[in-house]
């Protein structure tokens, strides 16, 4: 043992020394360093946890954003559709109103034009009669009784003589009667026509191309008492 260098006092000293060193190391090296290690691990774990939470929050936010965008898109398309529908219906309304307005305006214009023409033709009637009388004077060579002449001309144009419709006879019955004359009829003549023809509604039209007399249309019957018609009949018979 002595040759190997083992001796008891030295061994005991070494053991005591080792225990002292153990105490020092355990207290001043291992304690602080293990504390440090654990603190660092905790911090790292905390950091990882924070990162995980942050990542989760980010994922949630992304999902939320996607949802919001989808909602907004749906909303927007709905709004657009509604607006389109509304605009279409409004447009239809406007168009219909405009159409109606236009039709009304056209009708009014037509009626006005009709009235104007009738008035002008009515004015013309006197002048035509005067011209016709002058022509007849020249033709016949004698002056007819002016009153007689005027009556004759009126009769020619209107087919109404002394309050009676002379150009037509027969029974006319119907709902609506259309009376066409070459020149506008006076109100007395209209009354006479109304008396002769029994119908609920009367409409009086002016068509200079029939030259004179009346064409009366009641229901599906047409009675041609016009000068043009008579001339046509004459032409047919002369042929």
């Amino acid at each position: 043992m002595e040759a190997l260098g083992l001796n008891l006092p030295f061994l005991l000293v070494q053991i005591v020394n080792l225990i002292i060193v153990y105490t020092v190391v355990a207290k001043w090296i291992v304690g602080p360093i293990v504390g440090l290690l654990e603190k660092r691990r905790e911090k790292i774990a905390q950091g990882m946890e924070d990162a995980r939470v942050a990542a989760e929050a980010r994922a949630n936010a992304e999902k939320e954003a996607a949802r919001i965008i989808a909602d907004a898109q749906a909303e927007a398309s709905k709004v657009v559709r509604e607006a389109t529908e509304r605009a279409e219906s409004a447009g239809k309304d406007v168009k219909a109103a405009a159409d109606a307005e236009a039709a009304k305006a056209r009708d009014a214009a037509l009626a006005e034009a009709e009235l104007e023409r009738n008035r002008i033709l009515g004015d013309l009637r006197g002048q035509v009669a005067a011209l016709a009388m002058a022509a007849a004077n020249k033709l016949v060579g004698e002056a007819l009784d002016e009153k007689k002449q005027r009556a004759l001309i009126d009769e020619f144009f209107s087919g109404v003589k002394a309050g009676k419709v002379i150009v037509v006879d027969g029974d006319f019955k119907g709902d609506a009667a259309e009376v066409t004359s070459a020149l506008p009829l006076t109100s007395e003549e209209q009354e006479a026509v109304k008396k002769t023809v029994s119908a609920k509604d009367f409409s009086f039209k002016v068509n200079p191309s029939i030259l004179g007399g009346l064409v009366i249309k009641v229901g599906d019957k047409v009675l041609d008492g016009s000068v043009a018609g008579k001339l046509e009949g004459l032409r047919q018979t002369l042929k």
Binding site: F10, V24, V25, I29, P32, I33
Partner: peptide, 30 residues
């Protein structure tokens, strides 16, 4: 028995000194 001062004892004291210095350094640094 008697205890002699050997040259390994110097080594032991130096090693102890180094461990002590490490201990002071570490505990101060921490």
């Amino acid at each position: 028995g008697p205890f002699y001062y050997t040259n390994t004892m110097t080594g032991l004291l130096l090693a102890d000194l180094v461990v002590l210095l490490i201990a002071f350094g570490v505990s101060r640094a921490v």
